[in-house]
Design a protein around this nucleic acid. Sequence first.
RNA 1: GGGGGCGUAGCUCAAUGGUAGAGCAACGGGCUUUUAACCCGUAGGUUCUGAGUUCGAGUCUCAGCGCCCUCACCA
Length: 504
Amino acid sequence: MNTDPEGRGYVEAARRANREALEAMGVAPFGYRFRRTHFAEDALNAYQDTMGDRGPEVTVAGRLVSWRSTGKTTFGHLEDRSGRVQLYFRRDTLGDAFQVVEHLDLDDHIGVTGPLFRTRTGEVTVRVEQLELLAKSLKPLPRGKVQQAEDGVHHFGGLTDPETRYRQRYADLAVHPETREVFVLRARLIRFLRRFLDDRGFLEVETPILQPLYGGASARPFVTHHNALDMPLYLRIADELYLKRLIVGGLERVYEIGHDFRNEGMDRTHNPEFTMLECYQAYADYTDMMDLVEAMVSGAVEECTGGLTLERHGVTLDFTPPWPRVSFVAGVEAQSGLDVRTASEVEMRERLIEAGVDREEAETYAGGKLLDEMFKRFLEHRVVQPTFVIDYPKALSPLAKVHRQDPALTERFELLIQGRELANAFSELNDPDDQRSRFEEQRQQQVAGDEEAQPYDQDYVRALEYGMPPTGGMGLGVDRLVMVIAGLDSIRDAILFPAMRKES
RNA sequence: GGGGGCGUAGCUCAAUGGUAGAGCAACGGGCUUUUAACCCGUAGGUUCUGAGUUCGAGUCUCAGCGCCCUCACCA
């Protein structure tokens, strides 16, 4: 590569030469402000065919996304957040200003003014009479060519490398309107979730992200250090215990939308920091939370897509309530032939091995882990349509209340869609003595080497001792809901800046 | 963490172990209604990094870095 002293290539050197040429003729390469009268989309709509060659004058601003010079004439497209509009630059219209046009580059930000007309090929276009350079682009975006044909939009080249798309999300967004659309949809979804809960009397709150003691889920935390206090702090793995303290405090209905942090593996459905919605409702139980989730998620799908069905990989997902409710025990038994409440661990392990689990691996399963494997193997991945799996075994659910009709079970449900957990909810355990003994169990597991065991939170037990009303609680993975609604296969496509290794 | 794949021009990709190429982008010239504009010409490379095998490595071997897929764990 023929580089200048700063290590840039010849392509960038050419843009810098253009910048210098513009500065030499008194054109500032970076403006301060610009007032537009129309977005691109509005400009297109402002033209009527009866107007002929002299449509209304518009002032638009945006980034140059295409550029075709034919000598004394140049065509290009300007893109703003609403879309694109074609620009037409004529030497005899612009006079001396045409020299500026000759030093523009693809990706520059400009503002232009002029009347609308329709070209010979039928496209509504701005005949540029005034031009202002707003920001010079010194580095070309990795832009492919786009051809709009009758059978759809065709892409030629462009930014396709996933690593570059995530690391340089700004370039991905600048080049791909469809990427911008995902995050517009994400914002609309979160706005809907807030409004939904606000309308039902839930109070939005903020609880600590830096915590002296983490809890509320089983996961390994990130640890940091507070210098002034000289003590370790943990990034929260869940909001749960703080939100329930607020229920004790009488706020009755609270929710929080924020980031949780879990120091675990990353893959297509896991990012180390992710967005969780948790909400808690006093005097409610898990059946109330099921109604809430059903209304909230189906409402979100309708808000974002206009309908209640989604096409995903050839399957139609139907969000029309009510959704099927399958009991954990019956669902696993239907596929495995075993009732997990009465079957022996040996029987369950043998059944898993028959189903294809490695024998050596299966021999290590016991207790809650074994039940979890039975669930994963015989139920979870088979659930495609929105479905509530309800009444989980007690061993799997240390924070949930015991089922009022079966002491082996808890009042808990998960919402599954496409074989994935989207939400998890309980009738919350509010007996402080019971909670204390469950923390004791966790402490023993921690001593035994379980790095995900939950630490004993004495302050939380103290709060429960003051009396927490019966409460229904729910947590929902917002990134995963975005994935479902936007049809994304990787959580990285639902997060603007997904976690990446340090760039070398 | 285990297994598999990939890394070449600004972008997208080629190249039997034998002179590293193409399209687009860039630069120069031409063209006053084009739209993947077109025509003529020019330039552009530490083939991810480092060792090794070889007369000779983009290609083969080893190590490292990064990304993707997959399995395990977790939402």
